[in-house]
Amino acid sequence: MEADVPVRFSWTLAANATQYDLYVWKSGTSRPATPTVSGLTQTFTTLSSLERLQSYEWQVVGRNSCFATNSPVYTFTTSGLPDLTVSELTFNSSVPSGTVFDLSYQVSNVGNSSTGTQSWVERVYLSPDLDLRQADDILLGTFPNLSYLVAGGTYEQRVQLQLPPGLIGVYKLFVIADQTDAFCNDCAPGQPRSFHGGIKMVELDEQNNWAYSDLTIYPSPAPDLQVSSVAAPISAFGGDSITLTYTLSNLGDAALLPGRWTDEVWISQQAVFRLKTAACWQGWKYGTPSPYWKVVCGRCGYKFPTSSRVLIICMWLPMQKMTLWRMHLKATIQAARPSRWKLPLRPRLICRWLR
Score class of each variant (00 low, 15 high):
Val265Ala: 11
Leu149Glu: 10
Leu140Pro: 09
Trp25Gly: 08
Pro165Gly: 06
Ser229Thr: 07
Arg355Glu: 14
Ser339Lys: 07
Asp137Arg: 04
Lys303Gly: 07
Gln191Asp: 07
Trp293Val: 13
Val121Phe: 07
Ala177Ile: 05
Phe9Cys: 03
Trp266Val: 04
Leu167Pro: 05
Asp214Asn: 14
Ser194Val: 09
Lys276Val: 07
Thr90Lys: 12
Ser94Tyr: 08
Ile234Gly: 11
Pro338Arg: 05
Trp58Phe: 14
Ser213Tyr: 07
Thr115Ser: 15
Val175Phe: 01
Thr247Val: 00
Ile350His: 11
Trp341Ala: 08
Ser229Phe: 06
Glu156Met: 12
Ser104Lys: 08
Ala222Met: 12
Lys342Asp: 08
Gly252Lys: 05
Ser10Met: 04
Leu22Lys: 00
Asp186Ile: 08
Gln226Pro: 02
Gly198Leu: 09
Leu140Lys: 06
Ser71Lys: 04
Val107Tyr: 05
Val110Ala: 10
Pro128Tyr: 11
Phe91Glu: 05
Ala278Val: 04
Ser108Pro: 06
Leu13Met: 06
Leu256Cys: 02
Ser30Asn: 13
Gly283Val: 01
Trp11Ser: 02
Ser220Arg: 13
Gln179Phe: 06
Tyr155Ile: 08
Phe67His: 12
Ala135Asn: 15
Leu167Val: 07
Arg52Asp: 10
Leu22Arg: 01
Ala335Trp: 13
His196Tyr: 12
Val60Glu: 03
Arg123Met: 09
